[in-house]
Amino acid sequence: MSGLEQPGPADLLETARRLLLDEIASGLDGAARYKALMIANAMAIAARAAQAEPISELADAAKICADIRAGLHDDDALLGRRLLAYAEARRKISSKS
């Protein structure tokens, strides 16, 4: 991020989104309003992603999948909690709280 002129991407996206919602979408209806709200939603996700802490990826997710399917993690609450934490971290970006 260093070296980039400010304001940065999250600020730009959020400011543009507010303008879209407050001064453009409010005057629309029907399909046009639906599209404007979709655009605002996409900008909100991108803004949250731009300022989020990096999410630590699950190491070897493909093997975890195969082992779960083979029954090697039945009742493995530790893995279950890790997966829930991973899903929650991704949800913070994809869905508004």
Binding site: K35, M38, I39, N41, A42, I45, L83, L84, A87, E88, R90, R91, I93, S94, S95
Partner: peptide, 16 residues
């Protein structure tokens, strides 16, 4: 499609 793209972002909530 933006609609299809946004549908993908429903997944983490469902996973939770």
């Amino acid at each position: 499609s933006l609609e299809l793209a946004l549908t993908g972002h429903i997944v983490p909530d469902l996973e939770c």
